[in-house]
């Protein structure tokens, strides 16, 4: 037995192309678990590497930090996320990467069986002051099953 809802003008009793169906119980779907937003604040005094460059004459400071969200599913779920305030000024599907001749900014999201990890790795000319990065995320119940 199956449940099929066809798109308008298609016959649910005969249509087999999934693109012509609103729903079919023969296909799996993503099941929502939760969503949220989180802010990662980085103290630029805590850089992990520095170097001087001659042109332009300046010091570069390499920063790395992450923040986590518990999902406690006990397995690695299907997940996705966005950076909300990247340097270009728009929301972007993660991962985010932008580079120039003196540096880069990289924002990644990871998962394991208990948490999502929101990581930012970037280079700036600053070794003091805080910088904040906003993420949003979606977690689905679908298990990746690749432990």
């Amino acid at each position: 037995m199956k449940l099929v809802i066809a798109k308008p003008s298609f016959d649910a009793l005969t249509e087999v192309d999934p693109d012509n169906l609103q729903f079919s119980s023969e296909y799996d779907t993503l099941k929502y678990q939760t969503k949220g937003t989180i802010t990662l604040t980085i103290n630029q005094a805590n850089y992990y590497y520095s170097e001087h460059i001659d042109f332009p004459d300046m010091w570069l400071y390499y920063h790395y930090a992450y923040i986590t969200v518990d999902h406690n599913l006990g397995y690695i779920p299907f997940f996705t996320g966005y950076t909300l305030d990247n340097p270009i000024g728009y929301a972007s599907v993660a991962p985010f990467f932008e580079g120039s001749f003196i540096g880069f900014i990289l924002a990644n999201i990871y998962a394991d069986t208990t948490k999502l990890y929101f990581m930012v790795n970037f280079v700036s000319g600053q070794n003091s002051g805080n910088v904040s990065f906003d993420f949003s995320y979606r977690i689905f119940k679908n298990e990746l099953d690749i432990i």
Partner: peptide, 23 residues
């Protein structure tokens, strides 16, 4: 998705969890 040996799963286009990059 890809799971690296550190047991962290990454999405398409991502470095492994423990990536820090500098020349």
């Amino acid at each position: 998705f890809c799971k690296f040996p550190d047991d962290k799963v990454v999405m398409n286009g991502e470095f492994s969890y423990d990536f820090t990059g500098h020349y």
